[in-house]
Structures are given as structure tokens and as C-alpha cells.
Amino acid sequence: QEPLTASMLAAAPLKEQKQLLGERLYPLIQALHPTLAGKITGMLLEIDNSELLHMFESPESLHSKVEEAVAVLQAHQVKELTTK
């Protein structure tokens, strides 16, 4: 897959831009967290498209965002278990 550029993204309709970004994000996140990849990708897709494009070029910032999302997910799961 060739890298997703800002102009490619801008050419796509707004509704499809998030899907395009998600298609690129999903495999990267799946490599880190196979079971939570769909949910984490959904959470990261709420970030601005311009920042998401930047994250493709800097794995460290992508990983830190993924870990932040995982921390929130796990805290939420613990909270749900304790309330049951």
C-alpha cells in the first residue's frame, strides 16, 4: 500500500476519509493489540485527520496514542467488572 498523503485524503469525500485513515491505522494497531484493534482504531479516528497523517510518519507518537487508548479501555473494563 502506498503511503496515504494529505492530497489523497482531501480528494476523498469527508465520510470516506475516516475509513481511509482507519484502513491504514488498523493493521498498525493490530500488530500491537490484536484483540482490541477495532476499538482502538475507532478511538484514534476521533483525532484530527492532519494529526493522524503525521502519526503515520512518526511511530512513536502513534504508539503513545495507542497506549493511551488501551489504558482508558482497560481502566473502563476494570471499573465495569468491579461494579458488577
Partner: peptide, 19 residues
Amino acid sequence: KPFVPNINAAEFIPGFLQK
């Protein structure tokens, strides 16, 4: 803008899983 992970964000479903 600080990233605040939203626990209620819709799960992303990649194209190959949608088919």
C-alpha cells in the same frame, strides 16, 4: 490539542471484514 480517548468511540471495521 490533547488526545482524550473516548471509550464510546465507534469500533472501526476494516473493509475486508465488512464484506
